[in-house]
Design a protein around this nucleic acid. Structure first.
Lengths: 334, 334
DNA sequence: TTGAAAGCGCTAACAT
DNA sequence: ATGTTAGCGCTTTCAA
C-alpha cells in the first residue's frame, strides 16, 4: 500500500530499457537515440518520475545545494541579499541551505560542519570565523566570502572606499569640516575599511575625522554612540550602518540635538527602514541584491570548475543616497 | 593525492571492527559494548570522521533537513520567524532548506518539487498554493502551515481575532466611532480573518467599519490605500500590516492629514521599522520568533511520529503595542 | 546506441 | 555483542 515515488527502475521497466539508459536520457541526452529518449521522457512524465536528488548526489557529490551562512538573519540588511542569492541559485536549479549561526561561533561551526558534506559550496555572508579558518574551509569546498576580503579566498564586497569617499565629499560640500565616525563592531571587516577609507578621504578633502566606538551594529549601539558623541560633538557623523545611524539620531534628538539642523548623519546599507525614519536617512547604498546574486553566481562558477583566479575580490559599486538627514552646516557653532 | 574524508570503513578498519558496529556505535550506542564504543569514538575523533549525511539519508530517508517556504523573503516580517525556525531546527540538529518562492506560483512549485525529496518535512510560511494543493502535499510529507488555516493540515497562526479586537477596543476607547480597514492582498488568509474579526468586534463595540482595498502588502500598497481613504475619510484606520500602515501614513501626511492628529492608524506585525517611523506605529504584534519556533517544533514532532491530531490550528497570542500613531479623536469633524 | 555490473557511504535485517 | 549481507536510487565504467 506504500505509494512510493517511482524510481528509475520503474521508468526503465515500463519503457523497456535499462536503467542506465534512463539515467543517460536525463543527464546526457546526446548519448541516447532520440527515439528512446523521447519514449523515456514520455514514460517518466506519465509515472511522475522525479530523480531522487539524494541518490543522485551519492555517487558523484553533486547535491545541487549550496549553503548560505549568515550570522544574524535578524538583520534586515540580509533580506535583499538572500533574495539575490536565491534568484541566482534558482536560475541554476540549485537549492539554498540556510545556516543562521545566531551570532555564535560554536553554532556556526556545528551548522557548517553539518552542512559541509551536503553542499557543493558555501557563501559566507557573515561569519565569526577567522581568516585562517575560512581558508581551511575553502580547501575543502568552494567558498565565497561576502562583504569581507580574505586573502586567497574569492570574495564579493562593495566598493567601500568609494562609498565613504562620496559620503565625505557630500558632507564637505555641505560645509562640514569635522566628522565623527561612529564605529561598528571591532571584528567587522567593513568597519575597518570604512574607517581607513574615511581617513584617507579626509586627508584629501582636508577634513578632520575622529572615531568613536566600537559599538554594536544595532539601534542600541547607535544610542551608545550618541552618548560618546555628545561629549565632544562635531557637525557631522558617518555611522557604521543604518541601524547605528538611526539609533544615534533618536538618542541625539532626545539630547536636544536636531538632525540635520545641528548635526548631519549618514549611514550605510540603505536598509528598508532608512527611507521610513524621520528624517529619512542619507546613506551609502550597497547593491544588496547584486551582492547576493553575484556571490552565488561566482560560487556556482567555481563549482563548475572556473579557475579561482577570481581570487581577488569582486567589488560592486555602491552609491550615495541623499535624503534628509544631512544638511548644510548651520552657522551657529557646535 | 585526493584527501577524501574518512568513511565509516576507514574507522572500522582502524578500530578493528565491522562497519556495522561503527554505525551502531553512533546510532544506537546501547547495542555496543562500552569498550568498543569508546575505541570507535577514539578512532573516529582521530581520523576526523563525520558521517556523510547524504549517504545516511539514502537508506532510510532521514535527511535531517526541513524546508521553509517563504514567498517573499524580502518582507522584513519573516526575519524573526526565520530566526525562530532556525533555533528550533538547530536544537534538533536539523538543517533548514530555504525556498524563497519569489512571489511566483511556478517558482514555488518547482522549488518545492525539487526540495520535497531531500526533506523530511515542510513549513509553509507563505505560499501561493491552494488549500487542496497543500493537502496533497501534506499527504506526502509532514507539513505545517504558518499564518493560515487549512483544514486537515496542522497550522500555527496568531490569534487574529483577539488582536483585532484589542485594536478596535483601543480605538474605541480613544473615542473613534468609524474605522476604515485597509485590506491586504485578496488571497491572504490573514486579511480575511482580520476583516471578519473586525466586523464582529465592531458589532459588539458599536463601531462602524468599512473596508478599502485590496492592496499590495507593501508601502506602495499603503499609498494606494491612502488614495482610496481620502475620498471618504474616517478618524481611524486599521491597516493590513505595518508596511501598509507606514505607506498610508506617509501618503496621508502628503495629503495634509496629520497622524495621529486627524487620523489614528494601527498596523499589524510590529516589524523592525514600526518603532522607527514617525510617528512610531501602534500595531498588533505577532509573536514572530515563537511562530517560527513553534512551526518547526511541531513539524519535528510530526516527523517524529506525533499523531497529527494537532490538526487544529495552534494559536499564538498576539498583543497590541501602543505607540504614537493613535490618539484620542480630535474634536474637529473630519 | 544500449546493457550489465560495480559501486557511492551508510543502515538494517539476519546470523552468529 | 558483533559480523555478514543486502540493499537505498542513481551514475558510470566497461562490454557488447
Amino acid at each position: 500500500m506504500a505509494d512510493q515515488p517511482p524510481t528509475i527502475y520503474d521508468v526503465a521497466r515500463v519503457a523497456g530499457v535499462a536503467a542506465s539508459t534512463v539515467s543517460r536520457a536525463f543527464a546526457r541526452p546526446g548519448l541516447v537515440s532520440s527515439a528512446t529518449a523521447e519514449r523515456i521522457r514520455q514514460v517518466a512524465a506519465e509515472l511522475g518520475y522525479r530523480a531522487n536528488p539524494l541518490a543522485r548526489a551519492l555517487p558523484n557529490g553533486r547535491t545541487s545545494m549550496i549553503a548560505l551562512a549568515i550570522s544574524d538573519i535578524t538583520n534586515p540588511f540580509y533580506n535583499e541579499i538572500i533574495r539575490g542569492a536565491q534568484v541566482a541559485a534558482t536560475e541554476a536549479r540549485y537549492t539554498i541551505l540556510l545556516a543562521d549561526t545566531q551570532e555564535s561561533g560554536v553554532v556556526e561551526r556545528e551548522a557548517l560542519d553539518r552542512a559541509m558534506a551536503s553542499v557543493e559550496g558555501i557563501v559566507l555572508a557573515t561569519t565569526r570565523m577567522s581568516d585562517s579558518a575560512i581558508r581551511v574551509m575553502a580547501k575543502q569546498r568552494p567558498v565565497i566570502v561576502l562583504n569581507r576580503a580574505v586573502s586567497d579566498v574569492p570574495s564579493v564586497v562593495t566598493d567601500n572606499p568609494r562609498g565613504v569617499r562620496r559620503a565625505a565629499e557630500h558632507l564637505a560640500e555641505l560645509g562640514h569640516r569635522r566628522i565623527t565616525y561612529a564605529a561598528g563592531p571591532e571584528a567587522s571587516w567593513a568597519d575597518g575599511i570604512r574607517w581607513r577609507s574615511l581617513r584617507e578621504a579626509a586627508m584629501e578633502l582636508e577634513l578632520q575625522v575622529r572615531r568613536i566606538g566600537p559599538h554594536a551594529p544595532t539601534v542600541a549601539g547607535g544610542a551608545e554612540a550618541a552618548a560618546a558623541f555628545v561629549r565632544n560633538p562635531t557637525t557631522a557623523v558617518i555611522a557604521y550602518n543604518d541601524r547605528v545611524a538611526i539609533g544615534l539620531i533618536r538618542a541625539l534628538n532626545a539630547e536636544g540635538f536636531a538632525v540635520p539642523g545641528d548635526v548631519s548623519v549618514v549611514g550605510f546599507d540603505n536598509i528598508f527602514a532608512a527611507d521610513l525614519v524621520t528624517p529619512p536617512l542619507t546613506t551609502v547604498a550597497a547593491p544588496l541584491h547584486a551582492m547576493g546574486w553575484t556571490a552565488v553566481h561566482n560560487l556556482l562558477a567555481l563549482i563548475g570548475g572556473a579557475s579561482s583566479r577570481a581570487t581577488e575580490a569582486v567589488s560592486l559599486p555602491s552609491h550615495l543616497v541623499v535624503r534628509a538627514s544631512t544638511a548644510r552646516r548651520s552657522r551657529k557653532r557646535r
